[in-house]
Design a binder for these strands. Structure first.
Lengths: 185, 185
DNA sequence: CGATCCATGTAAGTTGTTACATGATTCG
DNA sequence: CGAATCATGTAACAACTTACATGGATCG
C-alpha cells in the first residue's frame, strides 16, 4: 500500500525519499503514515520492480540526493490500483477505544483524565484541518490553477479529516459526561 | 497491542484462541482486528512470557481445545497498560482516502462508482451499530447485571462506531454531490 | 454435496518499527 | 550552544498477512 502512495506522489513530480516522507506528513498524514526508513526501503523495492528510476544529484555541504521518478510501468500500476473497485471497508485500529473497552477496573478519575488528554489532542488537530491545510490548499491552487480536479479531491480529503475530528470531540464530550454522571466511585 | 487486547479478553474468563478471534470480531471488531493465525502465535508468546497459562481439554469428534487463562503477572500487565496515560492520537490509515487523493486522473464515473460502493458498505455497517450490537449488549446486561461499568463502556465504544459510520455517510454524500457538480468530464 | 463451523497450528513472506550511524547548516 | 533540518541508509526486530494442512459435523 505504501508503494501505491509513493507512486501517487511521484506521479506529480520527481522527489527524494526525504521529500516523500514530508509529503506524507503534510498532505497525506491524515490517512497514511510511514517511517522514513520504510520509505527508503520501499523505494528500493519499487526500483527493483522497475516502477521507479533514480538518479543521484551531487551536493556540496549536504549528502547527495537520490531523486526518484515514476516509470511508465509505475504509472500503469498506479492507474490499475486506482481503478480497481474497493469492495470492503478499511479496517481500523484505535488504541483509545481498545483501552476504554477494558477500563471498567480503573477508577473513574483515571479514565476521565485519559479522555480529557485525548480531547485536547483532538482540539489541536482540528485547527490543522480548519486553518493549516486550507492555507496550504489555497497556496497550491494559486500556483497551479491547472490542477483544479486535484484541488477538489484534496479538499474532500481535508473535509473528511475535519468531520472525523469533530465527531471525536463530540463523542469525547458525550463520553466524559456519561462517565461523570453514571460512574460511581 | 494485540497482546493487551487478548489479556483484556482473558481477564473476564478463560477462552480458546478460536473464541478470542470470535470475541475480537463480535465485540472489538470496530476498533481492532487480527487474523486467527496471529492470535495463536501471540498467545504462544504470552505463554512464554508467563502472562497466560493454558491447559488442553480433550474432545471427541473435534480437535482438542487449548484453553488459556490470565495469570497474576498478566493482570498486572493489563492494569499497567490501561493506567499509563496516552499522550498521542492513534494514527490511522484509510485506503479509500488514499485512493481518492490521487484519483484526479480517473474519469468522473469511476470515482463516483467507488464512492457509491463505499456508501452502501457503510450503510450496512450502520445497522450493526444500531441494531446488532445493542441487542448483544442488552442480552449480556440481563445475564450479568453486576457488570454495570462494563456495560457503560461497551456502549460508549458502540456509540463511537455509530457516530463514525454516520459521519462517513454524511461525508460520502457531500463528496458524491461535490464531484457530480464540480467535476467536468 | 458444497459451504460453514469448530479447532488447531506452521511456514513463508511482507510490512512496519526502533535503533544506529554520519555530518554540515540554520534557527532560536 | 543545543536542537532541528536536510539527506542518506542499514540492521535487527516485531507485527501482520497469506497460504497450507487436517477433518468431522452440520446446515441449506
Amino acid at each position: 500500500m505504501l508503494k501505491n502512495i509513493l507512486l501517487g506522489a511521484l506521479n506529480y513530480q520527481p522527489l527524494t525519499g526525504y521529500q516523500m516522507k514530508q509529503f506524507i506528513e503534510n498532505s497525506a498524514g491524515h490517512f497514511w503514515y510511514a517511517q522514513i526508513s520504510q520509505v527508503y526501503r520501499t523505494l528500493g523495492k519499487l526500483e527493483d520492480e522497475g516502477l521507479v528510476t533514480s538518479e543521484v544529484e551531487e551536493q556540496e555541504s549536504r549528502p547527495d540526493k537520490r531523486i526518484y521518478s515514476i516509470t511508465e510501468a509505475g504509472r500503469q500500476m498506479l492507474r490499475q490500483w486506482l481503478a480497481k473497485p474497493m469492495t470492503h471497508l478499511t479496517p481500523s485500529k484505535d488504541e483509545l477505544l481498545a483501552r476504554l473497552f477494558f477500563s471498567a477496573q480503573l477508577d473513574k478519575e483515571t479514565i476521565l483524565t485519559q479522555l480529557r488528554i485525548q480531547r485536547s489532542l483532538y482540539a489541536e488537530q482540528l485547527t490543522v484541518f480548519q486553518e493549516v491545510i486550507p492555507a496550504q490548499l489555497a497556496y497550491s491552487q494559486q500556483h497551479q490553477p491547472e490542477r483544479a480536479r486535484d484541488a477538489i479531491l484534496w479538499d474532500c480529503a481535508r473535509r473528511n479529516g475535519e468531520l472525523g475530528v469533530q465527531v471525536m470531540l463530540q463523542w469525547l464530550d458525550e463520553t466524559i459526561q456519561r462517565i461523570e454522571t453514571e460512574f460511581e466511585d
